[in-house]
């Protein structure tokens, strides 16, 4: 089963994402900020990381930059959740090593479809 790490400081978003992905047959773990996510990612391998951008302690862009620098996450799809107004965030995220992005708000079907673009 493919393992996904969902990172968001908002519990409702995190739960929604986790619930959706679990239903779609993924093994999902959750982290509430970049620091926790980085720690979890170092302790076990994930096939995909899905992270919010605005978070306390460590934001999503920094998380992606840090993850991409790890040998284990060199090719791993790293997706970010951004808002529609965050156009500049996308390029910033890409520069940090993000694979792609999902635009908020999204519905469960969109989420699964997007994940499917890079995780098979």
């Amino acid at each position: 089963m493919k393992k996904i790490l969902a990172v968001d400081d908002s519990a409702s978003m995190r739960q929604m994402v986790a619930f959706t992905l679990k239903k779609a047959g993924y093994d999902v773990q959750q982290a509430k900020d970049g620091v926790e996510a980085l720690d979890m990612a170092q302790n076990s391998r994930f096939d995909l990381v899905l992270s919010d951008v605005n978070m306390p302690n460590m934001d999503g862009i920094s998380l992606i930059r840090n993850l991409r620098a790890l040998p284990d996450y060199k090719y791993t799809p790293l997706l970010m959740l951004t808002t529609e107004s965050g156009l500049e965030k996308k390029s910033e995220g890409k520069a940090a090593g993000a694979t792609g992005w999902i635009v908020k708000p999204f519905n469960p079907d969109q989420l699964i479809a997007t994940i499917g673009k890079v995780l098979r």
């Binding site: 908002s10 409702s12 978003m13 929604m16 919010d52 605005n54 978070m55 306390p56 959740l81 808002t83």
Partner: peptide
């Protein structure tokens, strides 16, 4: 300001999604 922004941001994100 970051904290205030994040709170608004999360509410927006969540309310949009739900």
């Amino acid at each position: 300001i970051n904290t205030i922004f994040r709170a608004a941001h999360s509410i927006k994100g969540g309310s949009g999604t739900f």
